[in-house]
Design a protein around this nucleic acid. Structure first.
Lengths: 197, 197
DNA sequence: GTTGCCATGTAAGGTGTTACATGATTTA
DNA sequence: TAAATCATGTAACACCTTACATGGCAAC
């Protein structure tokens, strides 16, 4: 369970409610899990049971109570232990490549239409990624949620450096996708423009 | 369910037993699912129920019977329909990046040890990937299983081109990881060699 | 007046992994 | 003697996603 540690990490920066954590995940390209990830609520309950976090309930008028979670000493230790555990290789689930693998039954024009759509989507994603990286020195108000893992809000210069590197990684990943698909498209159209050759 | 279509795709090349499909997945970097993926047996049953594949049972002495699956016309149509469906963006589950995000509590030397391990693992993966790409013109006997999605065994020159592109993509992906981690290591050691600066 | 924000959660389903079970034959 | 290969499968678990439910307030 990785999301467990992602949450612990966020809480190691500051205390947050479940809703805030959810927002942070949803807004973050880096820590992205799912648009509507309610798994975090159950995870918070189990973290609380395991005494890795404490919770303070803040009652409000006309709104549901906010439950503010904070990391405990046990939680910090568990996080540190996990951070030191041997790294896993990244898992890339690239459905589109599998689709492409069986695409020879299509006309070159049909294939290119798919590739074109993929290029657009990837380009959008890259722009979003770059936009987040460039938000330095903008009004702090504008980025309440995405302040996390943004190098401006890092606690030490070394942490800022790490977070920038992670940001770079995601940029490089999408740039890589983009150049790959662009090269593929030009080669495909150059060599197989007429269907069935 | 993607594995459904990955299986249909394999069967569109030639009839295979569950065991052969499993082997192909395990040996393939491109279609990799899991070392011990028994999900395929249940998937084959459901494909059979849906009449997308037929099965022929071949009894043997001293061994369990082989069940040879073949794609049906319905299966081919379903595959083609899926191939034409709008592409999904790749999903990268990069646990190590999350780990790194909270690694500022470590000494620079500890961080570098993690990065070094990651670099080695990535390098190994890249070498494996490149080895598969370079097996052209080797004896066909040596690569019974991995013959799939290898450009030599493609059915048309355009398919060979597609499969080569997919191979290129995976090479580029791991190369990208490698250069990223190498750059990160040198910068880290240059700027933060002494713990806590 | 409908969308979006705040704020929590439950329940069901989808998908993938791991462990286990069987059992003969070949290879190191 | 231990392991790997052939060949199938079940069961349990882990993890993630989707849909649903609540309900008032603010903004467009």
């Amino acid at each position: 369970m990785t999301i467990e540690y992602a949450i612990l990490g966020l809480l190691s920066c500051r205390s947050m409610t479940g809703y805030e954590i959810k927002k942070t995940f949803a807004d973050s390209v880096v820590l992205y899990w799912s648009d509507n990830n309610n798994q975090i609520y159950t995870t918070l309950v189990s973290l609380h049971k395991g005494e890795l976090v404490t919770r303070e309930i803040q009652y409000q008028e006309d709104r549901p109570a906010r439950k503010i979670y904070s990391i405990t000493e046990n939680g910090s230790l568990a996080l540190k232990k996990w951070v030191l555990s041997p790294p896993e290789l990244p898992q890339l689930k690239h459905t589109f490549l599998v689709q492409l693998a069986w695409a020879d039954q299509l006309a070159t024009e049909e294939m290119d239409a798919l590739l074109c759509k993929y290029e657009e989507d990837t380009h959008m994603q890259l722009l979003m990624c770059q936009a987040i990286g460039k938000t330095e020195k903008t009004s702090l108000e504008d980025r309440k949620h995405m302040s996390f893992l943004h190098s401006d809000s890092a606690r030490t210069p070394r942490e800022a450096f790490i977070w920038r590197s992670i940001q770079d990684h995601w940029n490089a990943f999408y740039e890589n996708e983009l150049t790959w698909v662009q090269k593929l498209r030009t080669e495909l159209l150059n060599n197989w423009r007429n269907p069935l050759q």
